[in-house]
Design a protein around this nucleic acid. Sequence first.
DNA 1: CGGCTATTTGATCGATTTCAAGAACAGTGG
DNA 2: CCACTGTTCTTGAAATCGATCAAATAGCCG
Lengths: 234, 234
Amino acid sequence: MFDTSASPGDAALLPESIPSAEPSPCLQDLESLLRNLPVQRRRVQRKQVLFRTGQPCHSLFLIHAGFFKTCILSEDGREKITGFHLRGDLLGIDSFDMPSYACDAIALDTCEIWELPLAELRRTPELLPHVTAMLANEIRRDWRWMLALGTLSAEQRVAAFLLDLATRFASLGFSARHLLLRMTRAELGNFLALQLETVTRALSRLASAGLINVDGREIRIENPTALRALLAGD
Amino acid sequence: MFDTSASPGDAALLPESIPSAEPSPCLQDLESLLRNLPVQRRRVQRKQVLFRTGQPCHSLFLIHAGFFKTCILSEDGREKITGFHLRGDLLGIDSFDMPSYACDAIALDTCEIWELPLAELRRTPELLPHVTAMLANEIRRDWRWMLALGTLSAEQRVAAFLLDLATRFASLGFSARHLLLRMTRAELGNFLALQLETVTRALSRLASAGLINVDGREIRIENPTALRALLAGD
DNA sequence: CGGCTATTTGATCGATTTCAAGAACAGTGG
DNA sequence: CCACTGTTCTTGAAATCGATCAAATAGCCG
């Protein structure tokens, strides 16, 4: 089976910062704050749509467990996955100032989410700083990825993605060496601005270089140091 | 000289929405709110640094006139321009929740900026919604550009950039047909994830197709409809 | 004017895309 | 349980778009 516990060797992964996961500054705070509020807890099945662009928005959603993707669509049908989201991420903040959602949020896994009605939020002003912090954080994360996509090769982008995910896993207490990807190669490619074949090839090359081990969606990071070196340019 | 007044034909440009400029929802409001506060007005010369990554941040800056770029830098020296900013844009919000700035802000022009101390902001809670709105707006803008950079050809990206700038100009009351670029081809390329030569070539091709007219940094949009058609894929 | 930076254009090269085909896998219903 | 269908993944070969290298021109400022 899959080892989900953090192990000592994981520490070596953590100094990673390009692009940094910048663990949400207030997950614990936010969760404990929400515990005292009448949030509705809901289970969402794989492939289920939590909300879609244009739907009227009354709530934010805190991911308590599971794996989400958010994506936007252009009028002419081009799609872009704007992020993959784990426990502690807040979905819907990007449309905080708008009457309707600005992206689609789709579960890649069986998820548990906590629904936080905006009305509730307005009644709880001590939550606001958390929201602005998460907004600002999202901007910085997006910038880091724009930097990565604009300046890194295909192989480096894939490496950056794996290291980022590993760091986020680690900060949630999971293993940073064993990753179970919940998205398809096509989705990964979409996020990294690559074709799915290119993602596959990059993974294969990283694997044959001994940096990782690939078994379908199960990835094991064999040599985090070398992976990070590759990112910095050999 | 340069025609800076909006003309009737500009209306044709406005329906553009990929990537949309989404005019900041509250420029007028924000400016008039700030008029009553003790904001410090300052002039910034071309190439001058307004703030740099890591500097302690005590203020946000509202651009009242001029043209800015913001950029981030990775440890290994890769640089990325995260945006070009005009009147009405608020610089520094992305580090709202942090003790220091998260990017560099550099004037591309002689600018006038209004400095808004964070202490002042905390004393004026009615400003907060404006800030969150601008944060959320920035996220959506970034996503649109991620979509564009991930799915459009070089020529299309340049077209998208010109149309975006035109729309923003128009919403400020300037001409949407005559653009005076304040950035170099290299900076434009950096933002669009292209080499400067590729930007030049794209501009040349758009020009020889009669869609625009290029004279150094002075661009005239001759055929907005065709430009937008090109964006949607011929 | 001279020295600098910015822009343009050409020629070549290469990384990634595209096209194609087969293998592995998951889910479904008999 | 297995055959069947569709999706996902992998790998190869060819094509292409943009990057890189190079050099000439234009523009700017002291």
